[in-house]
Design a protein around this nucleic acid. Sequence first.
DNA 1: ATGGCAGAAGCATTCTGA
Length: 281
Amino acid sequence: MLIATWNVNSIRTRLSQVTDWISQVHPDILCLQETKVVDDSFPVEPFEKLGYSVEAYGQKSYNGVAIISKIKPKNIKKGFSDCTYSDQNIEIFKDQKRLISADINGIKIINVYVPNGSSLGSNKFEYKINWLNCLASFLDEQEKKGELICLVGDFNVAPSNLDIHDPNKYEGGIMASSIERNALNNVLKARLIDSFRIFEKNTGHWSWWDYRNNAYELNKGWRIDHIYISKELSSKLKNCVIDSSTRANFRPSDHVPVMINLNLDDINVDFFEDEDDFFEI
DNA sequence: ATGGCAGAAGCATTCTGA
């Protein structure tokens, strides 16, 4: 099963690029971030024509996430519905559409667009850390239920200095601070692993290049888009790839897709027996 | 410290992103 994540920076502007990519790669699940559109205006039909169902959770101009899936997802939840985070009133997270989750093939897919955070010490930075702490509590709840987790998205955090083209320049700053890395690690704890780092131990692999300063042409990128899976799934993980080719498209997103291949042949997926669970073309 | 580029809203310019 191919599971992909892609911050498309507006689904309406990037629509043909996304459908082209799906037609070439045939992912089973594609999680999108920064769709920048309310649910009623999400371009559903192009994906249905390709045999996919669409679950969107968006807003005007900013943020927005979606799950595009060959198999119709179950138990779709939008936002921190199960969050028991007590340090903050979670109402402050409801205006920004940054999380959607669903059950597919017996796996809890959690698609997130983590706040950028602007700069250390800003109000937006505090919001980012609180949001990550809330995500940690959301995952605690899933763990209690014994869910197999696949947590994907744009995390706006480079997990280590290997994930930055010039760590000396950026270390300690936004997306590279120990505060953010600690908050991310508190989400992952010992239960989730970074799919990409199972296969690649070296630096030089990026999922985002700034639009400015010729960053792509100079290959000055960051790895901030991630696919984290439950430890229990690690034996099923066949590969993890970053498809940097899309960054060379005409009018590209500044992010590129990241994708894993999970071999689920020997996983007990009881609802496969249910014909209803397959999306009708 | 600032700006560089891109998208949305909306029609000039501001806000946001990372």
